[in-house]
Amino acid sequence: MADIALTKKDFTSDQEVRWCPGCGDYSILSTMQSFLPEMGVPRENIVFISGIGCSSRFPYYLETFGVHSVHGRAPAVASGLAIARPDLSIFVITGDGDALSIGGNHLIHAMRRNVELKILLFNNRIYGLTKGQYSPTSEKGKITKSTPIGSLDTPFNPISLALGAEASFVARSVDSDRKHLTEVLRAATAHKGSALVEIYQNCPIFNDGAFDSVKDPSTKEGSLLQMVHGQPIKSAKYGVVKNDLHFEVKPLDQINEVDIIIHDAHHPDPSYAYALSRLSGSELEHVPVGYSAMLLDRVTHHWSTPNLMK
């Protein structure tokens, strides 16, 4: 624990923040700077490692240790550091292009190894730093500079992908919802092992409004399905119920309250979290937000643990 309680200011570096005005990264940064004191970890024991892209400038703005590494490779650099230095708290900051396109391989292997890393994936569904090409999370048919007749590729669902890669913790939040994002960060840092946190992040320049359905007051209440442990998974207008092997979203007036799935954030079977992850389609009509921290029988990838040192 730190000797003296630290404040948000203590985690703010002297570097001028250089994101575009209105970028969702500002609110994520601010939320993180506010959250870090609560972790109770001294600044010198916290490391932020990023890849390349707009979001990957994040480490420069935090008064902790930080490495702005190579495009897509932050999980690799961070894995080496985490294995050599299990005493540190390490965050990986990445974006949808960085994590899911050029760095897809490192992301999935960090998950399956359950390395002690908290991976924050800022998903703006576009390439920002290279000025507006489609990304691996861009919706099909998206018109961008590199897809003038619309993209043909099916987008990744980062949460489904992480679960397929044996992630032990997955979560989703939204850049502008500081309270929710803070709760998710709290759960992610409390989790033992790797955690993937997808954060919907608005790019006001190249993909403005991509998340309006989950931000606009007129639609937000209906689209955000709150996953709170021990509570029914629902929005103001919809609930999640069982449908054969899957879950489905139904208007509250068409279902019985008792049929709504009660969220078990520690469900031992990842198929549960996977079924929830499938509820968010490409159009973001319904988006589960919250986290699943699976109680899996997994060791974290700490090679220095005594039983492996023999």
Partner: peptide
């Protein structure tokens, strides 16, 4: 990358 992270 991991080797460099470890060196860091």
């Amino acid at each position: 990358g991991a080797a460099l992270g470890a060196s860091y």
